[in-house]
Design a protein around this nucleic acid. Structure first.
Length: 422
DNA sequence: ACGTCGTTGTACAA
DNA sequence: TTGTACAACGACGT
């Protein structure tokens, strides 16, 4: 677009303002950090090294906007109206269920202020401790869609959080703190910017090469919330209806689809999230799928979320499941996470016959997860044998590409390539 | 070359 | 609530 505009005499102004930091600058700084003189321009691949390199984010350029900035010289091209939903390919979605979130900057600022008002909550925020089954009042801010669409400035949000911290005695710290969540966002932007083919397994140097299984039937069951595991299905139905689920709920279903149970390619799950999430973000979505599938960033593939016990520990009564899967609403809590174990008389009384009103489980979690662990072990072993020279042996060929500005520099048509501030 | 440490597993014991 | 086995990865920094 930039090239086209330049060739057509259209003025282009691209400040870095969507993220806290300029990803290109972070990569540059990391290159010269003492321990990494020979890293070849690779972005920092751990959160810690990212935070250490990044330091404190710059202040927002402005805190108040009295009007939209003027549109520059369009070089004689006419301005088109904002496209309609149908033109964006969303005409087929029915409107029978209205999701609880509203768009826009006014809504974003209101939502942010409501969250930040509870200073103790902000100061004590710890991401892994949230309750993924909370849906009446979500355990997080749900500001991600507003950040994604530019309704809320990440820097403004960050500095408002810092203001709250200044007014409290103690506060949590990155990576778990609320401010730490914004740093995670920048972490994924930076790695995605500096990694060719970040959004796929093939040709992605930081991604484990894993022979995922093709299985259309299992994939569709997962996508449509028909796996027979109520916890998994409720999450996928919430995704379809709300376009949003709690972070740990996303973990549950992503693990289930990939290394935990179905052993299906993370790119397939990524596509579903990309399409249905109201906060879907190229860098963050791909980054988290790489993470959860143990393809990059995180490698403890024997740590598998249980589709039964994980949800149960937050919501033993199964209220979340009952809300999103009404057919299960009268299933006694003893069986709601495993309805196929309920005696037939119980199923009849609950008016929910497993296999008829609600699906039988598509896989046996015990057996499937065991098989997945084995497959992951094999995949990792073959990666070590040189299937994917992530490190070591072919150091030159794999590293030079980042630094010499050649063909493998991130494709500007794919990544949201930040420009230097002008 | 090697030690440290990593936002978010589970089941079980104490 | 905290600690342990399970079985053991890789980025980073010294």
């Amino acid at each position: 677009v930039t090239d086209f505009a330049a060739a057509s005499g259209i003025e282009v102004f691209s400040p870095v303002s969507h993220t806290l930091f300029d990803p290109a600058e972070i990569i540059e700084k990391f290159l010269f950090s003492s321990a990494n003189l020979k890293n070849g321009g690779r972005p920092p691949l751990t959160y810690q090294s990212f935070v250490a390199t990044a330091g404190e984010p710059p202040k927002p350029v402005m805190e108040k906007y009295s009007e939209l900035p003027p549109i520059g010289d369009t070089g004689g091209y006419e301005l088109l109206p904002v496209p309609k939903l149908e033109e964006l390919g969303y005409g087929d979605l029915s409107q029978e269920y209205i999701p609880p979130f509203r768009g826009g900057e006014t809504e974003a600022l209101k939502r942010m202020r409501e969250s930040l008002q509870d200073k103790e909550w902000v100061a004590k925020f710890e991401k892994p401790k949230g309750d993924p089954s909370a849906f009446l009042k979500p355990a997080t801010t749900v500001l991600s869609p507003y950040l994604k669409f530019g309704c809320l400035s990440a820097r403004y949000f960050y500095h408002c959080i810092q203001d709250v911290y200044r007014s409290t005695k103690t506060h949590t710290k990155p990576p778990v703190s609320l401010a730490g969540q914004l740093l995670w966002r920048d972490f994924f932007y930076t790695v995605s910017f500096g990694t060719p083919n970040f959004h796929q397994m093939e040709g992605n140097k930081i991604c484990k090469q894993i022979p995922w299984r093709e299985n259309g039937e299992l994939f569709v069951a997962w996508r449509d919330g028909r796996t027979g595991y109520p916890w998994i299905d409720a999450i996928m139905i919430q995704l379809r209806k709300w376009g949003w689920m709690h972070h740990l709920a996303r973990h549950s279903v992503a693990c289930f689809l990939t290394r935990g149970d179905l052993y299906i390619h993370w790119e397939q799950g990524r596509d579903v999230f990309e399409r249905l999430l109201i906060d879907s973000d190229w860098a963050i979505n791909n980054g988290n799928w790489l993470w959860l599938s143990c393809s990059s960033f995180f490698y403890q593939y024997h740590r598998i979320y249980s589709p039964i016990s994980f949800g149960k520990k937050y919501d033993p009564n199964g209220d979340y499941i009952r809300h999103f899967i009404p057919v299960l609403k009268d299933m006694p809590k003893e069986y709601i996470y495993e309805p196929w174990t309920a005696p037939l008389s119980v199923q009849e009384k609950a008016r929910c016959i497993v296999g008829k009103d609600y699906p039988k489980p598509v896989v046996d979690h015990e057996a499937a997860s065991k098989e997945c662990r084995k497959r992951m072990e094999e995949a990792y072993a073959s990666n070590r044998l040189g299937g994917n020279p992530v490190k070591g042996n072919s150091s030159n060929s794999s590293r030079r590409k980042f630094s010499d500005g050649g063909q493998d520099v991130p494709d500007s048509s794919m990544s949201k390539q930040p420009r230097k501030r002008s």
